[in-house]
Design a binder for these strands. Sequence first.
DNA 1: GTGTCTGCAAACCATTTGCATCGGT
DNA 2: ACCGATGCAAATGGTTTGCAGACAC
Lengths: 129, 129
Amino acid sequence: MSLGKKLRVTKQRQVLLDELRKVCTHPTADELYQMARKRLPRISLGTVYRNLELMAENGMIQKLEVGGTQKRFDGNVAPHSHVRCLKCGRVDDLALSLDLDMEELARQQTGYAIVRHSVEFCGFCPACR
Amino acid sequence: MSLGKKLRVTKQRQVLLDELRKVCTHPTADELYQMARKRLPRISLGTVYRNLELMAENGMIQKLEVGGTQKRFDGNVAPHSHVRCLKCGRVDDLALSLDLDMEELARQQTGYAIVRHSVEFCGFCPACR
DNA sequence: GTGTCTGCAAACCATTTGCATCGGT
DNA sequence: ACCGATGCAAATGGTTTGCAGACAC
């Protein structure tokens, strides 16, 4: 979550951040593009990708480390787990996080300097099973 | 891990499975392609992808649900966690698995029918930090 | 005014797929 | 002989990038 350089406040950036924080789903870049387009019809997909990347680097949003073909983004930067539906791909939150010293255990076992971790459950959501 | 239909025993399949079980790294499809090519120079990348997919469906190998741009495969089907280097992308094993009733907890909280889970730690490996 | 950001389009890269042929059973 | 599996090449789909003009500071 190391805060990077200061970003300029552009309409595009504001709208993307706002839309992302507004929803409880975990939209893909393309979904965010569709959402933002309703307010900024001329925004481009490239801008969406660039901003999501920059905002994630700055710790303003989270880029999810989940499976599936597309990356997903989360306006909630607090550590939490996710459940992903193997059929429809939706991702939901889960109020569960590993014990704080799990990362310490991982460091001891592997020699890695651990930055973060993620727990992902996979299964079928109520609508799909 | 629901075992699918029976697969024919082809040279390509045997070599891929053998190579994957031989290593402790978690190769990408392309890495496996390079490894297999030393023994089967005419094997195609499409065949590699098709077989990895089929063998994963049959529970013979594991397709890892980790971050990064490329999918990775694991010859070890026992449940375990992974550590991924944010710089070089290598993935190592971690002898750590969640409490058995974590999945039950996830089911209660979300209503999903949980099939599996994965824990991924991210950081910098000894060579990269 | 300067340096960042944007829209657009082309480029990229991992993965998938169609098809004619090959080979395991 | 049948039908799944293969090699090849083209197609796909998500993401990235180069560039010229626009905009935040």
